[in-house]
Design a protein around this nucleic acid. Sequence first.
DNA 1: GACGGTAGGTGTACGATGTACACCATGTCA
DNA 2: TGACATGGTGTACATCGTACACCTACCGTC
Lengths: 239, 239
Amino acid sequence: MTERAETLRRAPLNRDRVLRAAVALADDAGIEALSMRKLAQELGVVPMALYKHVANKEELLDGMVDVIVGEIDPPIHGAEWKDAIRRRILSARQALLRHRWASHVIESRTQASPVVLDYMNSVIGMFLAGGFSADLTHHVMHALGSRMWGFTQEVFPTPPPPADPDAQAAMFRQLAARYPHIIEIATAGSHDEGSAVGRGCDDQFEFEFALDVLLDGFERLHRQGWHSTGSRNGTRTAG
Amino acid sequence: MTERAETLRRAPLNRDRVLRAAVALADDAGIEALSMRKLAQELGVVPMALYKHVANKEELLDGMVDVIVGEIDPPIHGAEWKDAIRRRILSARQALLRHRWASHVIESRTQASPVVLDYMNSVIGMFLAGGFSADLTHHVMHALGSRMWGFTQEVFPTPPPPADPDAQAAMFRQLAARYPHIIEIATAGSHDEGSAVGRGCDDQFEFEFALDVLLDGFERLHRQGWHSTGSRNGTRTAG
DNA sequence: GACGGTAGGTGTACGATGTACACCATGTCA
DNA sequence: TGACATGGTGTACATCGTACACCTACCGTC
């Protein structure tokens, strides 16, 4: 009878509660720890109960992405296109930073949900409203790629340096001998010169740097009245 | 006795053969079908035999990436930096296109192998040889991101249109009503105007378009003698 | 007031996966 | 001859997603 009472006391699950719990669990325990079983346990329910609210795990992940996309600020009106888009993308980035697993999940999606399509549609609208041709906007959206979601994959992050200073120095010498160029730019870009492979790297700066190179490039092409040629083959953007 | 004879007849496995077989299996059956068991079966060996050659599945995947990176052409000498880097990255792209699973595996790596570090070191060397400062090169490498491996994630590919022409037209109208901007640029960018969500999209063109926007931007910053400010905060690239 | 349908939760069971651990066969060198 | 390394085997286990059959509570209709 106690289980029965408990079941009754508990408000019935719905899709939204399932998704929010999944997001919270991924935030706390990491995305790799998110299993249907653990999520069910978190909700005080048997694993199969979840399948009344999401078709399968993939759909669960889709829904989690929707939750995150819902956290992105709407476009501000009245601003110039470049600034408006820049702000919006940086807002997307903030949302992703709040949920570190999100970029990996976004990467793994194979279909866009309506929520995701809404966001893309809206970003595209911002370029068009800024006077971009549909043609240029098309390519510009491709060029933005994952950056429109506020992330770029930092492929192959350098391993954390060992704690022991001696080992660290030895490793540094070894790396410098084998990969001199990597070490050269790693130390150049980091704030604190000495510290091995330079984990003084400012991710936010790097993101904005690349975003601005792209946006500046888009602006230039737009001003030039750029359009893709008919044949498309061998076309160069001719900076 | 026959199994014994078979074991003897078979040349002993080594890391290289394991990795090549894994690449071949992923090429044929897709990366999601690559399991330690299936790979072992393919090699006529019991699953646990693989663990004498790779520590675990993650290391197997690391090794597979090394095989692919090994297919990238070495830098051509004597060329101007921009053209040399452009060609090299397009060569990387060709390698990835030969192995469609590779970009996903690269994204999932958490550590760079020596082979990967060699490649990065070499690309960095090409910028430095072109006269780029270590500072600018640092940021430029971040901005390239996954593009230096020859891919950009095409986040959320549009679903393939239904075969039935009537259903296709209905879907088109529905999408156009809900996501007008998406449809506008999708049809603008596609070769064949009418065909629904425009799967005439030329991936190679999009890749080169974005790559050139970036390389042109880098060139401009280089010519201007760009360098990051000391504080780094609020810096804009000032196109 | 009986009844059928639906929404939500349960319980059991299955196949697939990565891999720990103990073991065995072979070849090499002291 | 014997120690040892190298490579392959066999068994076993925990974890995962999820199919399937079932139960229960509720709600609208006759």
